[in-house]
Simulated assay, not measured.
Amino acid sequence: MDHALARIARIPKLSRFGWLMALYAENHQRLSRLFDLQTLAVGSYVSSVGDGLDLRVDVIETHRYTIELRLTYDICDPLTGEPDPSAFVRFYRDAHQVEATHCYVGRRWQDVIGLYPPPAEVVGHRMRMNTFLGKWLEYLAGQGHDKRTLRPVPIGATRAQDAA
């Protein structure tokens, strides 16, 4: 019994922060398998697989080391009139990480957990958002979304025109 306990004690434990960084890396792999974001210009794109739930990918900004984007369906929340579900994502080109920065329109982490939350609460909140993102990306891949199903939305087109 002591031999087994000694062996377990030698296995390094992954901190919650380490777990979060691993989740960011997994989400980078998932998103990179779905779409070739590094080739997309700023603008809106739609991925259709014939299931009636077109995925919208809005590339908001591109920088040398990051790409800011939003993933959403064109389903509007009845209270806000904004697309829901919706995930704002930061794609780190150099670090090979993907981080969901917030998942609700107008609700950044400060709105959800306050201005001065304890560090453990911040990490927990980020883990929940990025676990959601990972599960959503896996679902999208399972539905058949990928770079072949992604097409640009014409400039000036509205969401209603996208569906037509």
Rank of each mutant, 00 (worst) to 15 (best):
D162R: 01
P117K: 13
D54I: 13
D58C: 07
V57K: 09
S47Q: 11
P152I: 12
T62F: 12
L14W: 03
P85L: 02
P154F: 02
S32R: 10
I155E: 14
E61A: 10
P12M: 10
L14N: 03
A25K: 09
P85M: 03
K135S: 14
L140P: 11
R90P: 02
L14F: 11
R107Q: 15
R90A: 13
I8A: 14
L71W: 00
L5F: 00
T149Q: 08
K135D: 04
V112C: 07
T39R: 15
G52Q: 06
I75M: 01
R10Q: 08
V105Y: 15
A95F: 02
Y45A: 06
V89M: 13
L31G: 10
V57F: 05
I11P: 01
F35I: 10
T80L: 10
L133C: 03
Y104Q: 15
P119C: 00
S15G: 01
P119V: 05
L40V: 11
A160H: 01
P119W: 05
R30Y: 01
P78S: 00
R148Q: 12
D146W: 02
P85C: 10
F88K: 13
E138N: 04
Y92S: 06
L23F: 01
Q97V: 01
L23M: 03
E68W: 02
V122C: 04
V59Y: 08
V89H: 13
L133W: 08
L115W: 15
V123Y: 07
L55C: 00
T39M: 03
A87V: 11
A163V: 06
G18S: 01
A4E: 14
D111M: 13
A100T: 08
E68G: 06
